[in-house]
Design a protein around this nucleic acid. Structure first.
Lengths: 348, 348
DNA sequence: CTGAAAGCGCTTACAG
DNA sequence: CTGAAAGCGCTTACAG
């Protein structure tokens, strides 16, 4: 290939231009161009304008690999998750991608399995090797303090999505699971239900206890208490929902309503009810949690607590890349949960 | 920070060791170490063993950012998708992650929207800036020849997942949509259905035509033809399923069975049937496509065509990173589709 | 506010 | 089969 043909080809490329070209064109050093790129205040306003103009005209974008090498930090945002609900995961991804759109950050997927004894080491070696700009942790891995501790030692930025204040405010995006569960409780109590079952998530999830606490509080407001005998631990999976509901529905004095810790399990309750020959909602009222698509597609459409997962993901990513000036302020009432009343609940 | 404390800290790190350290310890040049890392045959077997041993002992892993800069190619695998079904997306991701596990490749998400006039440019700028190792394209973007052409010009590796042979065999992972639809047709015909409706995907999807062709063929085997009046275009979404089914069910001579192009739309058919006061499967048989989780959770459990999406994703990623020696051989019968008969279909 | 030098940790191109 | 030099495109540390 001759030099000429090379050049021809290069001009067709979108980024043949480097920081050196920009520096030459602007009559400054590459360091000054670098300062402009990185928004250093140590540049005269006039110089900055000139450089910016040339960057714009040439369509120059700094090479992320070169920056990563020099910065010792890449432009990857890792999503670390172990949530078994596909819908939760997809919504979270969408929110994060909303925030990363038009930036030079890329979303990298890091699923993990807390049952794996080496799970922290796997995250660690990703962090050490790829030096991600930051990590977004979702429940339940977000609740693992040892993991967070390791990230701090490794000097890796992170944001934890959690239902409790388990870290410094600017490292947490707080969800209000308790409040959502409380809404569910009040709704069922208002409908006149007294024997109410609850299938909660794994005890290893903090959100499980939050939701349980909120649900208990909501019932208490109506003078009701949650019968421990009607409170069962599920696994946030469909199958566990079927199984737990079957147990509940075969009790001597079966509940007239069941609140499940997420939609996946609530859908399992539907199946168990049908198998037990019970009509929904005439014989059994059901409330889920998350408002995933299945809740509106199933029959009868399910009453559930809407959790703004996508919004939460977007906020977490923004926090990490500091789009709003890095403000940690989470407006009060942010990510409020709401009860979506459909047709799976009915007055007793 | 003193030099000593720095060193102390560094020894705790997992990758303080560089190619230079390895070279020194092995008494060779960095180039030779580089050759070993990149599996060049131009290294004496003995030398290779020594270097490998030292790499193993030190736990050295080459810095991906530095390699990317020198190689002018990163170690990212981009998943480019526009499939509206979350379940499809999650399964695909899982398959790809299966293949990338334990490698130094990372999965990066690149959702896109073909309705966006600049969608190809967005993919292009990702490719130009981040120089991904390769891209995995899923339907329908995988069917866009202009996109593939652009990637070839940009010298970007890719694998297209598609239902038709639209590219060189080693650039395609072929799915057998027609065969799956044929199974659905035969099943319904065997049950004695004659008036059969079909809600297919968007006409802009190649898979739509494949499935339609397969379905038609399956019916033909039983002397049946597909009534154009009972064949409607949906959008692969739940809402479009409800809408199309409503139209079909209000026809003078309504179909006794409906085959939907994916599960999302099939679930929509359930809802439309209920609204029309029809019992499933007594009054209407329904068959879906994909075997996403919802099909087994809905009531009655849905008969559907199982599409091995996760396996397909795994194969696509393997092809891209050439784990099996880059063999393009797709064994005959690979990714065969099967009919999962549940309770949404019944003899007429 | 600005810049020249050195360096990030690898690979390519060339030479032997 | 092996290596010394130059380079990938940026930033850090230092100097002015």
């Amino acid at each position: 290939m001759t030099d000429d043909s090379r050049r021809d080809k290069d001009t067709r490329r979108q980024t043949p231009v480097t920081i050196i070209d920009i520096a030459r064109m602007a009559n400054v050093s590459k360091k000054t161009v670098s300062r402009v790129i990185n928004e250093s205040p140590l540049v005269r306003e006039e110089t900055r304008e000139i450089v910016k103009q040339i960057i714009k005209e040439t369509g120059f974008t700094p090479n992320p690999q070169a920056r990563a090498l020099a910065f010792r930090r890449s432009f990857l945002i890792g999503l670390v998750y172990d949530n078994p609900s596909p819908q939760y995961v997809v919504n979270m991804q969408r929110g994060i991608l909303d925030a990363l759109d038009e930036t030079s950050f890329q979303l990298v997927l890091r699923p993990c399995d807390r049952a794996d004894a080496n799970y922290r080491e796997r995250v660690e070696s990703f962090v050490v090797q790829h030096k991600p700009f930051g990590l977004i942790l979702t429940p339940s891995v977000s609740e693992d303090d040892e993991l967070a501790e390791m990230l701090r030692e490794r000097n890796c930025a992170y944001v934890r999505i959690a239902s409790v204040e388990i870290d410094k405010p600017d490292l947490i995006i707080r969800t209000h699971d308790a409040q959502g569960a409380e809404l569910a409780a009040r709704h069922l109590a208002q409908l006149g239900h007294k024997r109410i079952g609850h299938i909660h998530g794994p005890n290893t999830f903090r959100s499980t206890h939050e939701r349980l606490a909120g649900f208990t509080k909501g019932l208490a407001d109506f003078g009701l208490t949650l019968d421990p005998d009607l409170t069962i631990e599920g696994a946030y999976t469909f199958d566990s929902g079927v199984q737990c509901a079957t147990t509940l529905l075969h009790k001597q004095d079966r509940p007239t309503a069941i609140f499940a810790g997420n939609d996946e399990m609530a859908v399992g309750v539907y199946v168990a009810a049908r198998k037990a020959g019970l009509q929904i909602p005439q014989d059994l009222s059901i409330v889920g949690f998350d408002d995933t698509p299945i809740s509106s597609r199933i029959w009868p459409p399910m009453t559930t607590v809407r959790s703004p997962i996508r919004d939460v993901g977007r906020a977490a990513a923004r926090r990490l890349i500091q789009v709003d000036g890095g403000s940690a302020a989470q407006p009060p009432g942010a990510f409020a949960l709401e009860l979506i009343v459909r047709e799976s609940t009915e007055a007793l």
